[in-house]
Design a protein around this nucleic acid. Structure first.
Lengths: 199, 199
DNA sequence: GTATAAAATGAACGATGTTCAATAATTGGT
DNA sequence: ACCAATTATTGAACATCGTTCATTTTATAC
């Protein structure tokens, strides 16, 4: 096996181990020594493959962002109306959060050590994911230009995100998933009606 | 000085030190040894006053919750209409988040060590804070009973919370405070219009 | 086959939360 | 005022982290 193949294999094994640990135990249960053991390498090799744990976590989160982007816009029919499309986006988002809770929490719960800045490639990918959502809104409010639509989409996504986040946080009273879905659908529909009313 | 007075003074000093540390540096910068030094006691005394750091943080967060509850419902006039009241609640919430960013982040960013459960007294206080918000909504939708109003308020608050949270997170593109305020007001008005439309 | 470069290793370091035996202070009874 | 008994305070010690780096092992090139 060539040298760079081995290097890539090591990175892959470490990544897979970290991914599974985060998936199963969440970010708080992530330990460098556990990852190394799972990946079948030494503790030092982990820092050969990745700069530090932040770097590794950001790479996992980047993969989760990709999964989220794919899942969120699936099941979208071009022929359904804009309100139905917005509802579907919200429900898809909710389902992803429920089915991948620890991975999804890692996206928003991770903070860099020592207040280090988040690397630009990651923030760019994060914000690019929003653009996936713009198309349906442009149908609902065709008079908006893309910049205005982006702002509205961000607001709507943030709101949906907040509704799901608060409901999944242990410190708040939670409702079952099917009730949350009903509330979420009602919320998006209500907001969409308000938007049409203003248009 | 009596014994229990000294005990209370110790608890107060430790609390104040932790509060200031969280206020200035956030949760990630909180160190037991720093708190002890600031409070003028030994490291061990900290664990005499509080069970562990989680216990201390929860007590600080409890205080922040009280401040939030007071701030959020200030400037409310009984004679203004319900939509204006909801807007004012949202803007008050935003101002509190901006003016007390680290304390506010501690409310939602703290996680218990070792997946310990959050004590009941804290979750009860958290959920009780929501009840502050119910009154204005009951004006807007008088046909709702209190349980339904509570659900709607929770949804609206969660949405507002999400909009502010996403905007303040470093990984997302942020807009200036005055722009966020405009978006927030627009959002609440739009949602309120959608609610009235359905009523 | 040997020398050079690269990669892997795990012991060691510094920080951190927490504990606990030892010390100091306080209290209550006579 | 004195002395036990109780209580509070202390900081050294421990376990557990993330991270580093001198050493060892392996791969590469000539």
């Amino acid at each position: 096996m060539k040298q760079d193949e081995k290097r890539n294999l090591l990175k892959q094994n470490v990544f897979d181990a970290a991914y599974k640990r985060i998936e199963q135990d969440g970010l708080t249960g992530l330990r460098a020594r556990d990852i190394a053991k799972d990946a079948g390498c030494s503790l030092g090799s982990l820092y050969n493959a990745y700069q530090d744990l932040d770097d590794l976590i950001l790479n996992v989160n980047s993969r989760v962002l990709e999964m989220l982007k794919e899942n969120i816009s699936s099941n979208l029919n071009d022929d359904e109306n804009a309100e139905a499309a917005l509802v579907r986006l919200a429900v898809n988002y909710m389902n992803f959060a429920y089915e991948n809770y620890n991975l999804w929490s890692s996206l928003f719960g991770h903070t860099m050590q020592d207040n280090a800045p988040i690397p630009q490639w990651y923030t760019e990918q994060t914000n690019a994911t929003f653009l996936t959502l713009v198309t349906p809104l442009l149908k609902l409010r065709p008079e908006l230009d893309e910049a205005e639509a982006f702002i509205l989409v961000r607001t709507l996504f943030s709101a949906v995100h907040g509704i799901i986040t608060i409901n999944l946080q242990e410190r708040f009273i939670s409702v079952p998933k099917d009730m949350l879905q009903i509330q979420l659908i009602e919320f998006v529909q209500t907001y969409a009606k308000g938007l049409q009313n203003k248009a």
